[in-house]
């Protein structure tokens, strides 16, 4: 009996360590980051899968079940995924640790005026689409790292090494993406939704207008007419659109004005083969460089 207990005491901790750390994230980009940092010690899943709109998510009971089993939840933050709080509440999980991946990110477009719905779906903490800048990977990663360490302090060194390695890989790739987009610095584009301020700042692209007349408001005929005139002016070189939108109106706009349409994934998993940040920005850079370069 004593021997058995001794054996159990010996095996116990190692069995415990083998139990995966369960993480649920709002977006697949953060799941990819969790995988990169946590390695084999984590099992992670995103609430949003594939080519979806992050702004609107329906609360399915299966989400509550997933989060009910989780140790850690990673929010996008900045009020973008307010729905995540309802999922967390519905999970009934009192032990869940919640981290906000935007915590260390330098925020853009923080309103300096009183925001209300007349501005459309505007967020009081600023534009929440920070994950479209590979330069914010470090900040996002640090927030996730802190959460993982709270759940499993013993693995802090491993997580730290993994995070540093991933950030280095992304930083190296970033130099390449910047080099390929450098010829188009200052180029004017329009986008469907206001998803691009972080990306634009990083790569020197100018987003001068949007298909949506106000954030979250679908294009109106008068707005499209105004855009058509603007695009015919020849200053705007591309229509950049997030792939979860219906592309009929942008296609039409592109046909009537001759300005190329660049339809790109804005989430990991939104296109085949886009399984992490490296693949996501590779896809965006390639599409954009091809479209902008084609005109020259």
């Amino acid at each position: 009996m004593k021997k058995l207990l001794a054996l159990a005491a010996l095996i116990g901790p190692s069995l415990l360590a083998a139990e995966p750390l369960r993480v649920v994230t709002s977006i697949p980009d953060h799941a990819a980051l969790v995988r990169a940092i946590g390695g084999g010690e984590v099992e992670t899943e995103s609430i949003i899968k594939g080519n979806r709109d992050v702004h609107a998510v329906e609360l399915l009971p299966s989400f509550m079940v997933k989060v009910g089993r989780a140790d850690l939840y990673v929010k996008v933050g900045m009020d973008l995924d307010l729905w995540a709080q309802s999922i967390i509440d519905g999970s009934r999980n009192g032990k869940l640790i919640v981290v906000d991946a935007s915590a260390g990110v330098e925020k853009l477009e923080v309103p300096t005026f009183k925001v209300d719905a007349s501005y459309g779906d505007l967020h009081i903490y600023g534009n929440p689409h920070y994950w479209l800048d590979p330069g914010t990977i470090r900040a996002q990663g640090e927030a996730i790292f802190a959460g993982l360490v709270r759940v499993r302090p013993a693995s802090a060194a491993t997580f730290r090494a993994n995070l540093d390695a991933y950030v280095q890989k992304v930083d190296a790739a970033l130099k390449g993406w910047q080099a390929r987009l450098a010829p188009f610095a200052g180029t004017q584009v329009i986008s469907f939704h206001t998803s691009w301020p972080y990306f634009a700042q990083r790569f020197g692209i100018q987003v001068v207008d949007f298909m949506e007349p106000k954030p979250g408001v679908s294009p109106t005929p008068t707005h499209i007419a105004a855009l058509t005139e603007r695009l015919k002016g020849g200053q705007v070189k591309a229509i950049l659109m997030e792939s979860y939108f219906d592309d009929r109106v942008p296609q039409m706009l592109s046909r009537t004005t001759g300005v190329p349409l660049v339809k790109v994934p804005v989430l990991v998993g939104a296109a085949p083969g886009v399984d992490d940040q490296l693949a996501l920005f590779e896809a965006i850079t390639t599409s954009l460089a091809t479209a902008l370069g084609g005109g020259h």
């Binding site: 009971p61 299966s62 509550m64 079940v65 997933k66 009910g68 519905g90 009934r92």
Partner: peptide, 12 residues
């Protein structure tokens, strides 16, 4: 109320 997971299903 409580929720019991059954695989990916949820019994409330």
């Amino acid at each position: 109320n409580t929720q019991i997971p059954i695989g990916s299903a949820a019994l409330t």
